[in-house]
């Protein structure tokens, strides 16, 4: 009997809650470590990125207006759906990332735990990062963190799934919406994460996931005037500089990590200091009088 021919999948973008192909029609062939074709992913264009930003902008007010409790539950639901797809993540990651299934399983588990962690932060960061201020006058005065808006995320090739989740979850839990470019070298996990998002009560447009070439899309993230912040982990100092120029464009809040940071360090990566760069402190004054 002839050997069964595998059905090769072309993974699509996740944009506005849907799975379109790149408007450019371009794809990238992904090979496994032995050089066999594993799948194809879309090579997102500048136009796809702009579409994603539009979707994220549209979705942001309603996402921020949900109760913190509800956002937390939805992030937890994402973790549940990831747990269900854990084997698929392990298979796809281990096919291209050195270190085999053991390493891949460790990464997937850490990624799920990270989502659970930030799901929990959704209704706590306000208390931890905000405060009441004892001003010298008859006023109530307090400071509350509010989401910055639409955040562009650029994930590295190191720990492609864990890093992507680590960059998305902190801005997401506070009410930001996200446009993320996943790892260039290992993009399949990004595409599978789209399937997680689509099945976990996350409203369309809140998370948008692109696969493609960093060199092509990085400057577009920097220059896009409707992105309010950039959360990235990059390997080169040139990429870091490109992203930081985004601050000069429209005062984007830019936080660039080193791609090789210890993504498993929970003391660092689970802290509210990952949330802080993408909230805006709003201070309210009101007179106190009878």
């Amino acid at each position: 009997m002839a050997e069964r021919l595998a059905v090769l999948k072309t993974y699509k973008l996740y944009l506005k809650g849907e799975f379109p192909r790149s408007e450019s029609g371009r794809t990238i062939e992904i090979k496994d470590s032995r050089g066999r074709t594993l799948a194809h992913v879309c090579r997102a264009s500048k136009k796809d990125l702009r579409e994603a930003v539009r979707a994220a902008r549209e979705a942001q007010p309603a996402w921020a207006a949900r109760t913190a409790y509800n956002r937390g539950q939805i992030l937890y639901r994402m973790a549940e759906m990831m747990e269900g797809k854990a084997d698929e993540f392990v298979t796809t990651l281990s096919a291209t990332v050195p270190g085999g299934k053991t390493r891949a399983r460790k990464e997937v588990q850490a990624a799920i735990d990270r989502l659970v962690c930030f799901g929990g932060w959704a209704d706590k960061f306000t208390q931890v990062l905000g405060c009441a201020n004892p001003v010298a006058g008859p006023f109530h005065n307090f400071t509350i963190p509010e989401p910055t808006g639409v955040i562009g995320v650029i994930a590295p090739d190191q720990e492609p799934l864990l890093a992507l989740i680590s960059l998305i979850a902190p801005p997401l839990c506070t009410g930001n919406t996200v446009v993320a470019l996943g790892s260039e070298a290992h993009p399949i996990a990004t595409a599978v994460l789209g399937e997680v998002c689509a099945t976990s009560d996350l409203p369309g447009g809140v998370v948008n996931l692109l696969t493609g070439l960093r060199e092509e899309l990085l400057p577009v993230f920097t220059e896009h005037r409707d992105l309010d912040g950039l959360h990235a982990a990059v390997a080169s100092s040139q990429d870091r500089k490109t992203l930081e120029l985004g601050a000069a464009e429209n005062l984007k809040r830019v936080r660039v990590h080193t791609a090789t940071l210890d993504w498993y360090d929970e003391r660092d990566c689970h802290s509210p200091y990952w949330i802080e760069p993408f909230v805006e402190m709003k201070t309210l004054w009101h007179p106190s009088a009878t």
Binding site: V135, F139, W285
Partner: peptide, 18 residues
């Protein structure tokens, strides 16, 4: 806006983030 003055305006204090 980073500072919202409700029923007041242009109040400042070292303890109040701006």
């Amino acid at each position: 806006a980073g500072v919202v003055w409700c029923n007041t305006y242009n109040q400042f204090d070292p303890a109040s983030p701006f």
